[in-house]
Write a protein that binds this DNA or RNA. Structure first.
Length: 554
RNA sequence: GCGCCUGUAGCUCAGCUGGAUAGAGCAACGGACUUCUAAUCCGUAGGUCCUUGGUUCGAAUCCAAGCAGGCGUGCCA
């Protein structure tokens, strides 16, 4: 409906220009929104006030001219009013509302999808945790946000690829292998002073004993420098396997795992450095190579090759992003922990040096999670190996509750995640509120069928029987769903969906308590069954986008 | 020191990119189950949108300064 009105208004503006009522000027994009106040109509636009300064006319005069020239061909408008400083308020005919549901019925599980992406290729890179230990809760929020952003983009007509970048080339990997090796030797009875900088978690011991079972004691006598890579490879592979399993249990599946090592194997970093040098973004100080990121607004230049000749992580990361674009992605989205925010300007510098526009990269920063139990913070230390793993959380609270609760806030804001609350199956837990609405709708459908009704489609009902104000409001909300998904896709903000379905579920619960869906009046029953069915479709589609199940019974 | 983020009801947070009288959940109080699922609903109460200026028809939203909290500020990843 919103779009219809925008179209109507742009045609009207055209008419006004053609007739010479307004001097021809560039018109800013017309926006129509639903006012909070019912007396302000069903929809309103501020276009007259925007045009006031451009056309140098009184906004109320502009509004009057616009209204005079509206051609309501489809006959949807009850009345149009000018209010306040120059708002144009639209009142839609009551009979129009129910007709909007035809589209929901027709598109069914595809309702909410759009083509705004026009098939553009987008890559969403997220999680990308080092394979030096299992995923913990801190990774979980980024995992869900990345996954859902990808879902939303896919529904909006983008061609989406989900990618996990494996940092398996750095110093830390060597450290991992060493850690396992020392534990292995300890298991064989050697006295070893286990270094502080080695990984402390118990999973290291497990990996060590796995190797012991597999290979016996034959690595004990081998030279550390020679055998360490074997331990590294085994540990990284095994940990990565675990990470994949944990993610899958969390409902997150990647299209691609990209290894940093591959980048070096293909000389990706070398090639990149040459390119930057040719483009004169590099200067040398002794053995150190600096990238002049300040050319692109970074606050200081950054080292890409260290004094010892080794490229920095940053260099590899630019090469990695170059590789992404070479694989044909138009836009690349990076989901990072907010503690990496200082990294953002230099990454933008990196891609701009490659000749990409800033718009080709979008960084979504995810704030850290405050893990609580019963209101008390849970202390975590990755170094000391004391942390709550993603797997533990999913096992304890369930996939649905875990995911939903991570989507309850804007990514940018801090999130308290209280295991007791998230686990609780009560009104404190929003996920069940929404799921319950869906289950309830399914229950109504079952009862209706038991009583001999068939579940109606749009053409089986008399739309004019949906005439209550709360029914209009529900339809209005349903009608807004596709726009909501579009907005959510453009902004990369999945939380909008959780807020929306919470409102819709609330409207439904309220409606349910006030009105009977199934009654003696067969025609009315069918109309309401149809409305309720449409609500169910929205809830199901939305939950699906969030990767949360829509149960038929609870 | 510098940079980024945050500051909205007692608590946790929305606020659709500048719109009309700022919203929701929780907590508090009072009500509704012989009816299609009470994991629900209805009602009451709750505000210096951190402060001060600026931009304009109009600011929680934009700009500047300040205050408070978080994070960052490696030739670590």
């Amino acid at each position: 409906m919103n779009k219809n009105l925008v179209d109507l208004l742009s045609k009207t503006m055209q008419t006004c220009f053609d007739k010479g009522i307004f001097e021809k000027k560039d018109v800013p994009s017309i926006e129509v929104e639903a006012p909070k106040e019912n007396s302000h109509g069903d929809y309103a636009t501020n276009i007259a006030m925007i045009l006031a300064s451009i056309l140098k006319m009184n906004p109320r005069t502009i509004a009057t001219r616009i209204i005079e020239n509206i051609e309501d061909g489809d006959n949807i408008l009850e009345k149009v009013e000018i209010a306040g400083p120059g708002f144009i308020n639209f009142f839609i005919k009551d009979t129009i509302w129910a007709t909007l549901l035809a589209e929901v019925d027709e598109k069914d599980d595809r309702y909410g999808e759009s083509e705004i992406g026009k098939g553009k290729r987008v890559q969403v890179e997220f999680v990308s945790a080092n394979p030096t230990g299992p995923l913990h809760v801190g990774h979980a929020r980024g995992a869900v946000i990345g996954d859902v952003v990808a879902n939303i983009l896919q529904a909006s007509g983008y061609s989406v690829s989900r990618e996990y970048y494996i940092n398996d080339a750095g110093n830390q990997m060597n450290n991992l292998g060493r850690s396992v090796l020392y534990r292995y030797r300890q298991l064989l009875g050697e006295e070893i002073d286990y270094p502080d900088e080695c990984y402390q978690g118990h999973y290291i011991n497990n990996l060590a004993s796995e190797i012991l079972t597999k290979d016996g004691d034959r690595h004990q006598s081998e030279v550390e420098e020679e055998v360490i890579s074997l331990f590294t490879d085994y540990a990284a592979g095994s940990i990565l396997e675990g990470i994949k399993n944990d993610l899958e249990a969390f409902g997150v599946v990647f299209d691609c795992f990209f290894s940093e090592r591959e980048l070096y194997k293909d000389d990706g970093v070398e090639t990149l450095l040459r390119e930057l040098q040719e483009k004169q973004y590099i200067y040398r100080e002794g053995n150190t190579l600096w990238f002049r990121t300040t050319d692109f607004g970074d606050e200081k230049d950054r080292v890409v090759v260290r004094d010892n000749g080794e490229p920095t992580y940053f260099a590899a990361d630019i090469a990695y992003h170059k590789n992404k674009y070479e694989r044909g992605f138009d836009t690349v989205i990076d989901v990072w922990g907010a503690d990496h925010h200082g990294y953002v300007p230099r990454m933008y510098a990196g891609i701009q040096a490659l000749g990409k526009k800033k718009e080709a990269l979008d960084v979504i920063l995810v704030q850290l999670v405050n893990l609580l139990r019963g209101g008390k913070p849970i202390a975590m230390s990755t170094r000391a190996g004391e942390f709550v793993t993603l797997r533990e959380v999913v096992d304890e609270v369930g996939k649905d509750a875990a995911r939903y609760n991570f989507l309850l806030r804007r990514s940018n804001s801090h999130l308290d995640f209280d295991l007791e609350l998230v686990k609780e199956q009560s009104n404190e837990n929003p996920v069940y509120y929404v799921q319950y609405a869906h289950a309830r709708i399914c229950s109504i459908m079952r009862t209706a069928v038991e009583r001999g009704h068939t579940i109606p489609g749009y053409h089986d009902v008399n739309p004019s029987l949906l005439s209550l104000p709360e029914e209009f409001n529900i339809i209005k909300a349903i009608d807004r769903f596709p726009e909501l998904i579009e907005g959510s896709a453009k902004a990369g903000e999945p939380h909008r969906i959780t807020f929306y379905i919470n409102d819709l579920a609330s409207a439904f619960h309220s409606y349910y308590n006030k009105n009977r869906v199934i009654s003696d009046d067969a025609e009315l029953t069918h109309a309401r069954l149809f409305l309720v069915k449409c609500i169910g479709i929205i809830l199901r589609n939305a939950l699906h986008l969030l990767g949360v199940s829509a149960p038929e019974r609870m």
